[in-house]
């Protein structure tokens, strides 16, 4: 099983030096995780490191394809509030 970085990654480099397996590498358009190397930090850390420092919700998926940081979990902004604000800005 391996974690995965998807669209939305802002290339901030925070995860790269933390990975105990050296599985994370800079790529275009965004960082990638080498699935062959990723251990989900088992045996090294209690919590997967990339998902623990990533500042953007939804861009790291766990081995099951589930977002490690779902909407609202990092910013504290309730998803419906975010949606309403975005709709309001679009309508301007």
């Amino acid at each position: 099983m391996a974690f995965q970085i998807i669209e939305g990654c802002v290339n901030c480099w925070a995860c790269e030096p933390l990975c105990p397996s050296g599985a994370i590498f800079a790529a275009t358009p965004h960082f990638q995780i080498d699935a062959k190397k990723c251990t989900e930090c088992e045996g090294d850390f209690a919590e997967p490191q990339c998902a623990s420092i990533c500042p953007v919700e939804g861009v790291i998926l766990d081995g099951l394809g589930v977002p490690a940081n779902p909407p609202g979990s990092l910013t504290g902004i309730p998803p419906e509030r975010m949606a309403a604000a975005m709709a309001e800005i679009q309508a301007r």
């Binding site: 209690a46 490191q49 623990s52």
Partner: peptide, 10 residues
């Protein structure tokens, strides 16, 4: 501050 990353944990 909603979170910090400290000693390998959020």
């Amino acid at each position: 501050y909603p979170w910090i990353f400290w000693n390998n944990r959020r």
